[in-house]
Structure formats: structure tokens, C-alpha cells
Design a protein around this nucleic acid. Structure first.
Length: 127
RNA sequence: AUCGCAAACCACUCCAUCGCGGUUUUGGCAACUGCCAAAAAUGAGGAAAGUCUGGACAACGCAGAGCAGCCGCACCACCUAACGGGUGGGUAUUUUGCCUCGAAAGGGCAGGGUAACAGAGAGGGUCACAGAAAAAAACCGCCUUUCUAAUGAGAGGUAAGGGUGAAAAUGGGCGGUAAGAGCGCACGGCGACUGCGUGUAAACGGGUUGCGGGUAAACCUUGCGGGUUGAAAUGCCAUGUACAUCCCGAAUUAGGCGUAGCAAUAUAGCCUAAAACGAGUCGGCUCGACUCGCGGGAGGGGUAGGCAGAUAGAGUUUUGGAGUGAUCCACGACGUAGAUAAAUGAUGGAGACUAUUCCUGUUGGAAUGGGACAAAAUCCGGCUUAUCGGUUUGCGAUUUUU
RNA sequence: GGCUUCGUAGUUCAAUGGAUAGAAUGAAAGUUUCCGGAGCUUUAGAUAUAGGUUCGAUUCCUAUCGAGGCUA
């Protein structure tokens, strides 16, 4: 994954907590599941994980390709997301802990990078 | 030159920007030997896949004996750490070519493909429909004979011919006979045996002898091999913790302590020893071995970080030698991923290859496309399956030129 | 990562190696009824795919494809 270590969502516990009590919305071809204050304090503003279902994409090659494209699109638009937080006064306090994101890929076929980038932009504007 | 088949090899290349994994070095913060920054070189395959196999490695008691069962293998020799893999050979079958071999049927020679190539003469089972009969067969038929005027009927012999079927009792020929029959003969076909010849052997040739189907990719028999479980194995550190609680069952004898008693003695408790008993383990059963003194159940609780295993190995390879070959030997050279919510992506440009269309028309140019199958997860040897295209070598066919 | 089971009509299940692959339910058409339902009659519809063994394969074997289950 082409993200720095601190911005990745890696802990099994946090992911379990995220799916237990989380809000979500979707904008094709992606779906965002998010929750506030599950990340331990003073690590990162946002930790993000990506998931491509094995059910729709059987081959590991396809899943890797899609995950890399989504990850790349997210990485390039990270600063926009932070600006969005400042504008809407949603910037979390460092002591309270950051946001946890999980981006799911819901489309049934492999889309090119430009389509995925469009989806990411829409998603950030909607937040 | 084109086409086809087989084998081996390659798996588009380069540059720029942003970004990722581990490694090394330097610097900073710092003392949880960690985090951050910079630089350097480096970073997925021929199948990494399927998980079909053989191992390495690890644990289980350093793996006990017999029986049964289960799984696998099955012409021979060799290679290999080992194999169900590979190489060479044999046999069967199929195909291509050739033959002044033959009238034909067919035969011989050479090359290629295929084979789950032990056993149906150990044993039962099974072979639908049709057919007399599907394995010691007799419907029609053929022959002999008895009765009868004759058609025909009865008794016996026979298996050449007919029809059925996927398959009909070793093939067609000659002799032979009442008619027939491997009943006899020569030529085949299929087995078995063989102090014979060649070969390491399978086998081939010779000799002797036999001939009542198929099915083992259905049960089975014979020979050989297999202890079980897999890196979520396993070891260490950290964290947490429990010889806890409740219920049920079993608790022999001797001695000591304790308790009751003035004492003999008694026994609700504890300790020690002994055999017996019980329980557990060694995949099933029997024997045998070992461990424990308690066993079984209920109901809850905690952790799920890190390090090692884990990347120098049956390693890759030049040259030379041995061998028909797989492969082996000698000397030299090389350093080649190591992640763990899991590292290779995105964008732009250039070049090469290639398909289609257009222009020019011996060459070439332009536009629009195309690049497959597929991602390491402990590591090696194979097998199988997927794969756009390219290169080389060998063989065969066709055409042209010499 | 490893181990393991299965695949039959639209759905749920049958079928000693023997040929028209069966049953229920659903679908379609007809009949009955004033209309619908129920009933009755009929029709179509399947062995995951590709090879092999066999005279003959849903069944036996091999390889692919797909769907589950177990495993600290």
C-alpha cells in the first residue's frame, strides 16, 4: 500500500470496533465506512484501510490492482480532505483521537484510475 | 521461402515526476534500542497458480510386536536426496513414408504418437435388450436308428452352416468321418514351462506343452512402500493467569502425626510406603510399555504484541571431462525478494514489435489500436493446468532456383 | 497458509454401470366456474465442463470450473 505507516489502518481490534458502530455512505464505485475517536490519541488525523471483496474478484492480481489504484487516488487527495475538515470545523483534537476510514470497492468490474479518482473526489466533498 | 509437428529459451525496453517494502550508511530526537529525515544500491514468476505428488525442517514417548484395516505404486534397467518424476530399452497399438516383397489379402524396413503395459489358469460377482445358449450351450440344421403307406413322431450323435448380439467358444485350409469336431496335419494366434542361445534385465529366437469369452478404470489376489500431524508446526520474551468455584463418581492395607479417651482402642483430617485398582497416552484390536493418584462435567475469565523459525540452498553458472541419454565429476566465477490488514502503483514522454485502414506504390509514410496468463507467504525437486507473441534447433510436406 | 465434502429440471430431493434419467413443487396451455381459487388433462424443462475406461457412464478414473465446511 502506497501510504505512510501512520496513516494506515492496521489494528484488527480497531477494524472490528469500526464495523460495529459506524456510519457509512456510498458514492459509486466506492463506499466509505467511518467512525470518530476509535484511533488512539496523538497518532494521526485519519487512518485509512482499503478492501476489495474476494467474492466479486477471484484473482489476487485483480484485487491488488484495484486496491493500489484506490490507495493512490486517496493518497493524492489527502490534503483536500484535511482542508475539508478545517472548513467544516471537524478537525479532531489530538487528545481525542482521529478518524478511522475503511474504503470498500463496490463496483462489479475493474474500472480505470480516472473513474476511481472521480469517486474519491465526490466522496471527500460529501463528507 | 511457406505451412505443419516436436523440443528448448525469452516474457517489451528506456527516461522523468509523485509514492511503497526490507537492507546498509549518515544525521537528529532519544533511552520503549525505538521513531523521524536523507542518501545508496536493491525489490515478484515460468508457471509465484492448482495443492496432485516426493522430500527438507519441526513437534508428538527418538516412533514396540502381531493381526486387521486404510492409502499409494505396478514391463525392465538406470538417474536422483526422494518420487507417482526423468532417461534409455522392451512389448502392444496407431499413424506417416519407403520396398524390382506380393496377383490380392497382407508382409518387411525406417521415423513419429499413445499405453492407469502385475494377475480373469486363486475366488466368487456381473454381462441390460435380443438370442437356443452370455459360459461345461443346442432353436433351426446335419447324420444314424426305431415306428409309420407318407407327412411326421420318438431315441441318440454332432457343433460345419444359419440367425441374435458389443461379445458366441483360437483363424482360414487340407485330411478325416455316418455327420462332424485341434480328432489329426502344416501355417498362424494366445498363454505356461525351459540347467538351450543372445541380452545386466524386460524380452527375442529355439524346444516342450496346452488352448471353453469379456469385465480388475467393480469386489478381489499377489508383490513393494507408507508412524501421525503440519510453519496457524515449534522455541523464547512480554502480557495475563488458576494447585480457584460448583456438581457427580471413585477412594484398599500398613505405619506415623493429629483428634477423642486415664488407657486399651476408635477414625471425620494430614503425611509416607506398598501392592491392587482406576484413569490417561502410544491412530483400531490383542499383547506389551509408560505416566498419574484422582477422574468427568458445568460455568465463567484472559491474551491474540514482538523475536527466532525465514531465506547460502539437494543454489545459479562458464569451461573441460565421463556417459547413447537423464545425469555425474573437476576447476573457476556469482551474490540473487523477504512482506505479515501483506511491499512494484499512477501520470507523462521516447523507441522497438505487431494488427487494421488510408496514401504512395520495389523500399516507405500516416492514423487508430494491441501486449497474454497471472502476484512470492517456510523452503526445494517434479507433475498438471492457463498463456498475447517472439527467437533458435530438429523432422516432414509443398513450390521455385541451382 | 493447510485439510476436507459436494455439484442432477426454476427449487427441494431420487435413481445396482443397462438407455424415454423419476417424484414433489413451481411455469405454460386447456378444461371446469358468472369470475377467481381448488380440482382434472396436457406440455416444456436437467446429469457443472473436458477427456478416458467400458458394448454401454448420472454412477468408475483423471484434469479443469464452481459452491460450501473445518482448522490458533
Amino acid at each position: 500500500m502506497a501510504l505512510e505507516q501512520a496513516a494506515r489502518l492496521k489494528s484488527r481490534k480497531i477494524i472490528a470496533a469500526l464495523f460495529k458502530g459506524a456510519q457509512s455512505y456510498s458514492c459509486y464505485p466506492l463506499r466509505l465506512v467511518w467512525a470518530k475517536s476509535v484511533i488512539p490519541a496523538n497518532i494521526a488525523v485519519v487512518q485509512c484501510g482499503f478492501s476489495v471483496p474476494k467474492k466479486t474478484f477471484k484473482r489476487a492480481v485483480d484485487r491488488n490492482l484495484i486496491r493500489r489504484r484506490v490507495s493512490e487516488a486517496y493518497r493524492l487527495h489527502q490534503t483536500q480532505l484535511h482542508n475539508q475538515f478545517k472548513i467544516k470545523h471537524l478537525m479532531p483534537e489530538p487528545e481525542a483521537g482521529g478518524y478511522a476510514f475503511m474504503i470498500l470497492y463496490t463496483a462489479k468490474e475493474i474500472l480505470p484510475y480516472t473513474e476511481i479518482e472521480k469517486g474519491i473526489r465526490k466522496m471527500i466533498r460529501k463528507f
